[in-house]
Nucleic acid binder design. Sequence first.
DNA 1: CACCGCTTCCAAAACGATTTGGAAGCGTCG
DNA 2: CGACGCTTCCAAATCGTTTTGGAAGCGGTG
Lengths: 338, 338
Amino acid sequence: MAGAVTIKDIARRVGRSVTTVSRALHGYSDVAPETRELVQRVAQEMGYTPNVMAQRLQKQRAETLGLILPTFGPRFSDPFFSEFVAGVGNQAAERGYDLLLSTRAPGEEEMAAYRRAALGRRVDGFIIIRTRARDERIHFLRQLGFPFVAFGRTAETDDFPYVDEDGEAGMRQIAHHLADLGHRRIGYLSPPLDLMFAQYRLEGLRRGLAERGLTLDETYLRIGALTEQSGYALALELLSRSEPPTALACGNDLLAIGAVRAAQERGLKIGSEIAISGFDDIPLAQHTFPPLTTVHQPIYQIGKRVAAMLIDLVEGRPLAQRQVLLEPEFVVRQSTLP
Amino acid sequence: MAGAVTIKDIARRVGRSVTTVSRALHGYSDVAPETRELVQRVAQEMGYTPNVMAQRLQKQRAETLGLILPTFGPRFSDPFFSEFVAGVGNQAAERGYDLLLSTRAPGEEEMAAYRRAALGRRVDGFIIIRTRARDERIHFLRQLGFPFVAFGRTAETDDFPYVDEDGEAGMRQIAHHLADLGHRRIGYLSPPLDLMFAQYRLEGLRRGLAERGLTLDETYLRIGALTEQSGYALALELLSRSEPPTALACGNDLLAIGAVRAAQERGLKIGSEIAISGFDDIPLAQHTFPPLTTVHQPIYQIGKRVAAMLIDLVEGRPLAQRQVLLEPEFVVRQSTLP
DNA sequence: CACCGCTTCCAAAACGATTTGGAAGCGTCG
DNA sequence: CGACGCTTCCAAATCGTTTTGGAAGCGGTG
């Protein structure tokens, strides 16, 4: 690590003040063209790169977006997160922002992480992901007046900027699809209901079935975790009933992948003997056998959009649209087709 | 955003200098016990949180680790990365470091990102992942003398700190396993060979077969991308030959998952009619049907370890072990068993 | 000549912390 | 009483930048 070149070194070399050098580098009009060129040439020659920390201290801006992923345990395999992170990260980089990433299980430690990052002005704003019915993160940031944009809504208030997909609409389409294929015994594997998106999706299923004159048999409703593991176990449970469901809707793709394995293990032909659907359209959904009927969410794009909104917010630009609800796209593949 | 409490505010309130406040907060011995308590109490009351940017400028340390994921295109679904990132992130958080994450496709822009972050002293060190045979990142950081730790080795030099799994040993075991099961026509789907790990694994396969008196038929060797897509396409290709392979080893799990789908589509019973193996043991590997025989890498743990080494390096602590080669664990599941 | 306006420059303050190099006050000892 | 040592404190410098509020010099004008 060679001693880094500072603005002072340049000033000394060109025989001007640091003020002038700084202004020359930023193209201010009160420096003579020859001086500007000289300064810029010398800066280039000396390999000058501004010290970001100093810039940030002076500007009182971290130029950093915070993203704390709510994950349990060390295994962190949700492809949903990876894609979202990529979207956020790339948008941030494009606008000159850093992305500060960590993972924390929901709870006290999580809140401590938010507090530290916000109060220590380590980030300019947060991105909240996987909102909960009663979301303390949103609570905290709202009362602090700290900038944030959420991916998802919450049950408590509507007064904050967010992007969300209309999960209810998506799941209604699945309900219609299954009902129209003639299914009457329809099971549903739901993620935990304190997650907002799980509520919307369940509600969508109920409404969609109702619109076809059906009701969800509550004994076919199972609530599990957000893992294939859980999907596998719950599906086995339902499939071993005396009157097993002929269709199995799942609250996300990971659950569906587990359900697919369970059905395969029981020797069921997926599509004809049992229909299985997912939700999210993670990359893997096209690569199960058979490929998964699901609802597509442009997760990468949502990540970019959320980041863009947050940056606008942080920089004091007015938001074109403070709350965005995206219409999801229903994707029929073989896992529900005879 | 209320005006944040600074050390100066505390000083004013307790009627001491900022020096004393700073020293009191850090528990220096040259401040009277009563003063220390007073200061700490007042700091607490006023809700003081140190301004990290100022601390970092003064300490000349970013307290931040850089990790640039080499990904192509917007879809970034590699579960391998997610888990690694979680390991790095959590270790960093534990030691009070931030993780600066971005994604960049290998090439000029990638190198520019390294340059900017390093020269702007935006990070204290880098973690290099997915090393390449000729790795310009390692080149650059080495000649700059900038701290870094790699996950993986490179063909050019051995003189840098790294952690790697012994991919050759792992793949040798797979070769033995398949040979011992009686397979003679063994296909291999390899990731691109400019990736170091792909070279080791291919080499391991060759050596393992040789140790059983077999040689790899080069016409059964296919090189593809790191995706299920690619595994699917290449497997179909091999399976449609007049003499298809009876076993298909794959250079990573994603390729294997694609191969599984291809085999299922052709109506082959996996395990008995065709054996398929992966490498990495990503979480999904246990949830394919049938579950995948593979080689386990403790990716999360490796992430933690690499981060810990980098932090030691950055803080000038001597490394207990500068180069670590981990013995991988062979995991037999049903995808290779009759 | 006195004044004005324009161009070009810069000293100093500021951002919020840490560190350096004393200084003041007080008791003790020879 | 003077010297010394100990405890407790602090002014000022520093980290590397940006910004503020002029100042100097010069030519043109009334």
